[in-house]
């Protein structure tokens, strides 16, 4: 489980593209729904043409999560427009002060989409969770990952408030691969002074094993929501 009590009503998931933001966002949304929170997930991805939050809409809606999806997501056109359907989430928050919104942001400079919502987000308060994986080629070192974060912060005008380590090599991830990423986690937290909110993984048996060995980390199991083609 994610430590939900530490999070504000607006939760932004950002990071390098392919670091697993959508998996984290969907996983977090499902965790929150199970904990009884009223919430919506907002697909702010203007970068990815496919493999996005929109793929998980049926599962999210079944869990009671509202989905705010841009009009052209998963269509045959590549129009990075974010229409009024996105802003509707703030109207919901005005009506319901306990309503949580999770923003799944596009990779790297896709975070520019956030800038438009910056005044609302600053007014209402936000938690911005920076996701990184040491098994992704352009964020293999903590220094490169942090450089990417600084680019995201410059694009969005917002600042990360916590770090999530989502280091994995897909279905081939072993418990050792995750353990090997803990130094990376420490280094990123040291360089940014951010707390580590979670080390995410898909395999529940690894979580137990890792937790007994490294009790200082919050190993959080999330389901793999990536659309399967075959």
């Amino acid at each position: 489980m994610f430590c939900l009590q530490e999070l504000k009503n607006n939760i932004i998931i950002c990071g390098h593209f392919g670091c697993g933001k959508t998996n984290v966002a969907v996983g977090l949304a499902l965790d929150m729904a199970r904990a009884g929170r009223r919430l919506g997930i907002v697909d702010l991805d203007i970068v990815n043409p496919y493999f996005r939050t929109a793929d998980s809409v049926p599962e999210l809606e079944r869990a009671g999560v509202d989905c705010f999806i841009p009009q052209f997501a998963n269509t045959n056109v590549d129009i990075p427009s974010l229409g009024g359907e996105i802003s509707a989430v703030f109207a919901r928050q005005t009506d319901d002060p306990f309503y949580t919104a999770i923003f799944d942001v596009g990779g790297d400079n896709g975070a520019i989409a956030l800038r438009r919502y910056r005044p609302e987000l600053e007014k209402r308060g936000y938690s911005m969770l920076f996701v990184a994986s040491m098994y992704r080629p352009l964020t293999e070192t903590a220094e490169d990952a942090v450089a990417g974060l600084r680019e995201i912060e410059a694009c969005s005008g917002l600042h990360a408030t916590a770090f999530i380590n989502n280091s994995n090599i897909g279905r081939e991830t072993s418990a050792d691969d995750i353990a090997a990423s803990l130094t990376y986690t420490d280094k990123i937290c040291e360089l940014t002074s951010l707390p580590c909110l979670a080390v995410t993984l898909h395999n529940a048996s690894y979580a137990k094993q890792l937790h007994s060995k490294y009790p200082e980390y919050n190993f959080t199991v999330i389901s793999d929501s990536t659309k399967k083609l075959f």
């Binding site: 392919g18 994986s133 098994y135 080629p137 293999e140 994995n168 090599i169 081939e172």
Partner: peptide, 9 residues
């Protein structure tokens, strides 16, 4: 880069 990494095609 050594060992396995996770990459988009």
């Amino acid at each position: 880069m050594s060992g396995k990494v996770l990459m988009k095609g």
